[in-house]
Amino acid sequence: MQRYPMTVEGELALQNELKELKSVRRPAVIIAIAEARAHGDLKENAEYHAAREQQGFIEGRIQDIEGKLSGSQVINVHDIPVTGKIIFGTTVSLLNVETDQGVTYKIVGDDEANVKVNKISLNSPIARALIGKEEGDTVVVKVPGGVVEYEIEKVEHL
C-alpha cells in the first residue's frame, strides 16, 4: 500500500473536518431528509432531492478523508534533525532572480497544499526542484510559463 506524506497539522485538519462531517453535517442532513419526506410526494419534492444529494456529497467526503487518513504517513518536522537542507515540511524563502520578488513556501503533502496560504505540494515542480538544496543555492524551476530561477534565501524547520 502506498503511503502519502502529511504534516501533523494536515492530519489534524482532516480529523477535525471528519469530526464535523460525522457529528454535525451528517445528522443535519438526515433531519432535512426526514422533514422533506414528511411533505409528501417524493418525486416532485425538490427539498428531498437536494437533501439526498447533499447526503451523497457528505458521505463521499467522509470516505475520502478516511481513505486519506488510513493511507497517510504523518511526518513531524520537529522530529527530523536539522541539516539545513530543504526537506518535506520545511519553510523556504525564495527570491526570484529575474524580478527580485520574494516568496515563502512551506512544502506539504498533496492534500494540504494551498497556494493561497503559500503551502505547496511535495510533488509540485517548485518543491521537487527545491528538495535537497540549501540556503544560498540557485534553483531553476520549469513552470508552465517557462523557466524561473530562484535563489534560496532562508530554510526554516518550523
Score class of each variant (00 low, 15 high):
residue 7 T to S: 14
residue 7 T to K: 06
residue 9 E to I: 03
residue 11 E to F: 02
residue 13 A to Y: 06
residue 18 L to K: 00
residue 19 K to A: 14
residue 20 E to L: 08
residue 21 L to D: 03
residue 21 L to Q: 04
residue 22 K to Y: 03
residue 23 S to M: 04
residue 24 V to A: 12
residue 24 V to W: 02
residue 25 R to A: 12
residue 25 R to Q: 09
residue 28 A to C: 02
residue 31 I to W: 11
residue 32 A to V: 04
residue 33 I to Y: 05
residue 34 A to Q: 13
residue 35 E to F: 01
residue 35 E to D: 13
residue 41 D to W: 02
residue 41 D to Y: 08
residue 42 L to H: 11
residue 47 E to W: 05
residue 48 Y to Q: 07
residue 52 R to H: 03
residue 53 E to R: 08
residue 53 E to A: 10
residue 55 Q to M: 11
residue 56 G to E: 13
residue 58 I to W: 01
residue 59 E to L: 08
residue 59 E to G: 07
residue 60 G to A: 13
residue 61 R to H: 10
residue 63 Q to E: 13
residue 63 Q to L: 15
residue 64 D to F: 14
residue 68 K to P: 00
residue 68 K to A: 11
residue 68 K to T: 11
residue 70 S to H: 01
residue 72 S to N: 05
residue 79 D to V: 06
residue 79 D to C: 01
residue 80 I to G: 04
residue 83 T to H: 01
residue 85 K to L: 08
residue 85 K to G: 10
residue 86 I to E: 00
residue 88 F to Q: 09
residue 89 G to P: 03
residue 90 T to W: 01
residue 92 V to L: 01
residue 93 S to G: 06
residue 93 S to Q: 09
residue 93 S to F: 00
residue 94 L to P: 02
residue 94 L to M: 05
residue 94 L to W: 08
residue 95 L to D: 04
residue 99 T to I: 05
residue 100 D to W: 12
residue 101 Q to T: 13
residue 106 K to N: 02
residue 109 G to W: 08
residue 109 G to L: 10
residue 109 G to N: 05
residue 109 G to I: 15
residue 110 D to T: 12
residue 111 D to S: 15
residue 115 V to K: 13
residue 116 K to A: 15
residue 119 K to N: 11
residue 121 S to R: 13
residue 122 L to G: 04
residue 122 L to W: 14
residue 124 S to E: 06
residue 126 I to S: 15
residue 126 I to F: 02
residue 127 A to N: 14
residue 128 R to I: 09
residue 129 A to G: 03
residue 130 L to Q: 12
residue 133 K to P: 06
residue 133 K to G: 11
